[in-house]
Design a protein around this nucleic acid. Sequence first.
DNA 1: AGGAGTTTGTGAACGCGAGAACAAACCGGA
DNA 2: TCCGGTTTGTTCTCGCGTTCACAAACTCCT
Lengths: 222, 222
Amino acid sequence: MTARTSPESARDIPEATVARLPVYLRALVTLSEQGTGTCSSEELAVAAGVNSAKLRKDLSYLGSYGTRGVGYDVDYLRYQIAREIGVTQDWPVVIVGIGNLGQALANYSGFRSRGFRVVALLDADPARHEAVVAGIDVRPFDELERIAHDHSVAIGVIATPAVAAQDVADRMVACGITSILNFAPTVLNVPAEVDVRKVDLSIELQILAYHEQRKTQGAATA
Amino acid sequence: MTARTSPESARDIPEATVARLPVYLRALVTLSEQGTGTCSSEELAVAAGVNSAKLRKDLSYLGSYGTRGVGYDVDYLRYQIAREIGVTQDWPVVIVGIGNLGQALANYSGFRSRGFRVVALLDADPARHEAVVAGIDVRPFDELERIAHDHSVAIGVIATPAVAAQDVADRMVACGITSILNFAPTVLNVPAEVDVRKVDLSIELQILAYHEQRKTQGAATA
DNA sequence: AGGAGTTTGTGAACGCGAGAACAAACCGGA
DNA sequence: TCCGGTTTGTTCTCGCGTTCACAAACTCCT
Ligand SMILES: NC(=O)c1ccc[n+]([C@@H]2O[C@H](COP(=O)([O-])OP(=O)(O)OC[C@H]3O[C@@H](n4cnc5c(N)ncnc54)[C@H](O)[C@@H]3O)[C@@H](O)[C@H]2O)c1
Ligand SMILES: NC(=O)c1ccc[n+]([C@@H]2O[C@H](COP(=O)([O-])OP(=O)(O)OC[C@H]3O[C@@H](n4cnc5c(N)ncnc54)[C@H](O)[C@@H]3O)[C@@H](O)[C@H]2O)c1
């Protein structure tokens, strides 16, 4: 599925901008909860930890939702970004692999408030099927097809060991899931129309380690 | 601390390359465990999920560790990358906030094998101090200074609620920690010499949701 | 030794994103 | 109505990262 220019709402938002929209949304939610009705691009940029010029350019891809000389209406902009991202309604999500990490994810309350709803927890280990995590029964992995179909699940989360991740991904793709969030430290092979995002703790730490080593290299190898 | 060109090993590796080196390292470890002695850039690129030209350019920043017409010696390249990243020895790490996520992190065995060692688990809640997670005592947050000093900790992980994250970061910076991995959904304010990397599950899911919405938009708003 | 085949390392072109800078647009007061 | 102050939306420029393409270098076979 290559980038196709659709007739209406024809703007295709740069990937770098898409990755920042959730940050802006989070900042706007915080501002709204604090009772702020209006904010300038500078204020919002500080709250989001970015440059204000970059913020304005990002928002300009969505449309002209600000007022010159005034700023942005917090609740209005918040809704517009949420609509653009697609989190004005909840997305059903399945989590596969209910071990250490999968349980933490299932217990994470930030899901619900940010546009997602966990509809199933699946695990291949029968010993896990007794458990109830975060009020949800852990079910056999074989029920993936049925659940994905019944709830029209488009997004799947993989929290299994690395060796099982490719198999799980294949099964997910087979039942129509087209977006995967992968926590297993392995490269997934999927069709081009399926989006995969990976979260790898070890990689993040190793990037930090690289810079850390550089900071202290002056005294090393004496 | 601006980028300073040091006399020897003068190359400063592009940030995009630094972020991929851990992926190459992981692929090399897998190849090594499979008994592969030599691999071409094409093979390694497939294993790492990247373009082979990009892989070669990335590796060229480290030096010329390959042999034309042959490829790369897996174990030799593995060591060179590990050395460049700085994970030939273990980095001591502290985890703050031993809730759902912090416990999962503490139990994660991938730490040890990838160059990191958890030296302390800290939590502000006295009720947590009874617990032993992954064989490590959960200690009061106030012991951060002592532990950071005793173990020369340079890397800290924040897994507290968002409201506490900035305070925790300030304390970490105060005791000499210069690299922070932040799981709390908030923007951290730290001095320029401190590196912060953030992992935000909700943002990843929202990015997926954006693309997912685009995929199915043809039938929507009928 | 020489040549065919293979693979690395890198120069060059290209596209995207970041940031500065500024004109256009809005508000409020006189 | 006009004018000064403010802030957005956009244009322009620059630097970084990706990718192509190919010469250089190595192996192996004859
Ligand atoms: N725990 C962490 O903090 C952490 C951090 C970073 C990455 N990871 C990665 O996340 C993944 C999960 O980590 P974890 O610590 O939760 O591991 P875990 O062993 O505690 O849990 C894995 C779960 O997956 C289930 N499983 C195994 N094969 C399966 C299959 N084919 N189908 C369905 N379920 C299956 C197991 O029964 C188990 O319950 C691993 O790949 C790990 O490398 C974990
Ligand atoms: N659970 C997840 O899967 C998940 C996913 C994404 C993001 N997060 C984020 O990670 C963070 C932790 O999530 P969680 O589910 O583990 O929350 P949690 O409430 O289970 O755990 C938080 C822990 O932090 C401790 N804490 C609070 N204030 C502290 C302080 N000032 N100093 C030290 N410790 C303190 C609490 O006592 C508690 O043990 C949150 O910010 C959450 O938004 C969690």
